[in-house]
Amino acid sequence: MNRGIPINIIRFILLVLVQVLVFNRLNFFGFINPMVYIMFLYWYPIKEKRAVFIGLSFLLGLSVDFLSDTMAIHAAATTTIAYLRPAIMRFVFGINYEFQSFKLSNTTKAQQFTFLALLILVHHSVYFSMEIFSIANLLLIVKKVLSNGLASLILCLLFSTLFSVKKE
């Protein structure tokens, strides 16, 4: 995986910059800001060490926090999906994702879609619960998770098609 390291570093930096300089300023309908940096976790190689992956995700979230004055909310949400990613993958792709020959590009479109949607759903649930921080506003949390989640999903799907790993 020597080739993977520089690609992931560049991806890390570009996604953080795109997130804070473009998508955090979108404010569609006044409150919708899609979070595209989740794509880092979607693209990250599966067979790498898990501890490194969780640490990197924490750093990714923290970098976004650092640039958008949100304390450490992004970091918490991103660490959560990094930790849960193997469980989500087992749920979506079945047991065969653990095989050596498994590649994200070999799976069906529906599987990729479900995988991405679950990542976004968990991430946004954690993020907005921590941002609003009160059970009394449960309805507001649900509203924000759904509307922002939909926007993130659409943009992430566009990203995944636009920058898809070349078909083999």
Binding site: A51, I54, G55, M71, A72, I73, A75, A76, T79, Y83
Partner: peptide, 15 residues
Amino acid sequence: LLLYILLMIISLAFT
């Protein structure tokens, strides 16, 4: 799991 819990506590503390 321990790493996850540690990082989560750090971010919760900051928040």
